[in-house]
Nucleic acid binder design. Structure first.
Lengths: 196, 196, 196, 196
DNA sequence: CATGAATGAGCGTTCATTCAT
DNA sequence: AATGAATGAACGCTCATTCAT
């Protein structure tokens, strides 16, 4: 006796939604957010209408991608959190996020909607905060990150690296790293005269 | 006693060309480079074809805007150069460029073509270099700017501020200044154990 | 029992493609090849994009029309070939092709691309040759067509009739027939001193 | 001492009109009637408005070109008429007109408006008739041109050669001559049983 | 009266979104 | 529920024609 037809279909539907999401992430990552939905559909191996069944419009897909990207950042944070040394953990995390921004053309436009919509901002804070906040706090306690450094700083510093990468990708592909390091340095506490 | 007879007729055409340029600058500044040429024409109060007469294609307009923006930066540099103190001059210049990026959405996409085309890069270097290079050198000599800091750094740091401004304009309009200061700080020489 | 499942869906698409083709043929036939693709779309009762889905550009539509017109000529040739008398067969064919050119403004510009592109010329030769060549050969053997008469002659003679029809359609609709007969006569072998 | 200013200006105006006409003739001849009026103006070395001052619209220029081309045909007729032998005179004239059509892309569209407007037809008949009619008549009297051959035949036969030239110019530039000869042959009287 | 800059309707084409199958 | 063909508004751009100089 089958477990009713719906579960099966749900699985199918869920699969399709996931395929669209994955394809969208990949295309936006490689070609930027200008990729057309037809391209996404084709890449996902489904019809356009399937995309629209799952996402009423283009933005809805981006909204969902937001969560996906966010998950990615959380994953990175979890990994960094497992590092013993607080300073290293923070640096690792910040650098990995910067790298994500630099190599994935989709992160900025998808994720930074947080800065344009309170809803996204709240979402990001709620999900990322509990993991990243401690990372920052610990690093501050360890003296490797200045006071007043916030999660938003972390996000925007990374976005900046992403913007540099965007501008220089074609001509100087690795250049973003120079600025990544500069920005990481800028998170350090201001040096006092005699160290301490 | 008029200098030459032709300018009379050109006056109108030149006016229109200028109106197109200005309108383009304004639209690109406010709404980003995605503004359509029809929009530019409407904003300039001229027909589409007038835009196309002056600028055979979209890029040509950007090219011209490039020069206009460049002139703006040169103007800023000249002003800064007139400041006696080398450190203050540098800081003033960098900040003013950042401000330009932050308040004008057109600067980055128009000016940063330098990072995508050798020709623009050369132009920028040739025109800006002679004025800005001394600014940097003097500040380095004065010990307020780290060695290895280049004009490109200056451009990209400013572009970063522009990207932050882009992302936060709607919700936190003045936020870019926070990052402007952070980045200016990052141009300082690394602190030695006992400071200065 | 259906042959295959796909045709079902294709049916609609194929219908539309056919409608576009037909509308194109009609418009080009009546108004010449200058008819716009928007006109074709409107005449076909479909949106512009439907035209573009089927034919990425104007030439693609002409390419397809090329084949359609070619099929028409082949049909005419087949019909003529079924006539027993070689001379009558040739005359019938030539006249019918001339008639096609005279009454359909689209034939010349669509079909005569053969004279501008080797590819089309080859296609035309390959498809029409095997049927028309015998027609010519037989008529030559029967002494009603001069030696040296080629398929190209046949095409160009017909095109000429088309051009006359074009020029005189409005004022003297049937005039082309006069020239059709003149040209058909010009295919006869040169008369020898003592006739037959 | 100037002969009053107006005559001078008239001369200027007439000169300009002539320059436009000449430029139009040349451009249409080389590039076909699709050449833009701006092109014509530039080629004539005048502003567009000067073109429009002389010709209220594009067609008006073509109308005037009509007369120019007509003059050309008259000139050819005059030359042919000076040939002693009636048959040779006719052949020469017909061939030269065909040549004009074949080498001048403008002749057909400009001159053949005669077949689309009674007015032009009348004009053509009135101007060309008195010179060409005798040419035909004499050739008919000499037995080298069939009865019933008219001026219109002459025009349309030439137009046909022009159309062939148009179609084959790019790939087989000299081919039109083959058809010119064929068509000239077709003007001969039908051969009787015993020839001559 | 000559100039050539300006106009705007219209072309070919693309893409987010809808709808028939 | 899934497909992909169909839609039409909108873009970049051209050119016959008009108008300010």
């Amino acid at each position: 006796m089958s477990v009713s037809p719906t579960p099966t279909m749900r699985a199918d539907a869920a699969t399709n939604r996931q395929r669209v999401l994955t394809a969208g992430a990949r295309l936006f990552s490689e070609y930027g957010v200008d990729a057309t939905l037809n391209d996404v559909a084709r890449a996902a191996g489904v019809g356009v209408a399937t995309v629209y069944r799952n996402y009423p419009n283009r933005d809805a897909l981006l909204d969902d991608l937001f969560q996906a990207k966010l998950d990615q950042l959380i994953e990175l944070a979890d990994r960094a959190a497992s590092i013993g040394d607080a300073s290293a953990a923070f640096d690792t995390y910040l650098y990995s996020v910067m790298q994500a921004h630099a190599t994935d053309r989709g992160v900025v436009p998808v994720l930074m909607r947080a800065n344009q919509s309170a809803q996204f901002a709240a979402e990001l804070g709620a999900q990322l905060g509990p993991i990243v906040q401690p990372l920052i706090k610990s690093a501050q306690a360890a003296g490797s990150v200045r006071d007043g450094f916030t999660i938003q700083d972390l996000c925007l510093l990374s976005a900046m690296v992403g913007s540099v990468a965007d501008l220089t990708r074609d001509t100087q592909p690795g250049l973003w790293e120079r600025y990544a390091h500069m920005l990481i340095d800028s998170t350090r506490p201001p040096s006092t005269a005699n160290g301490k």
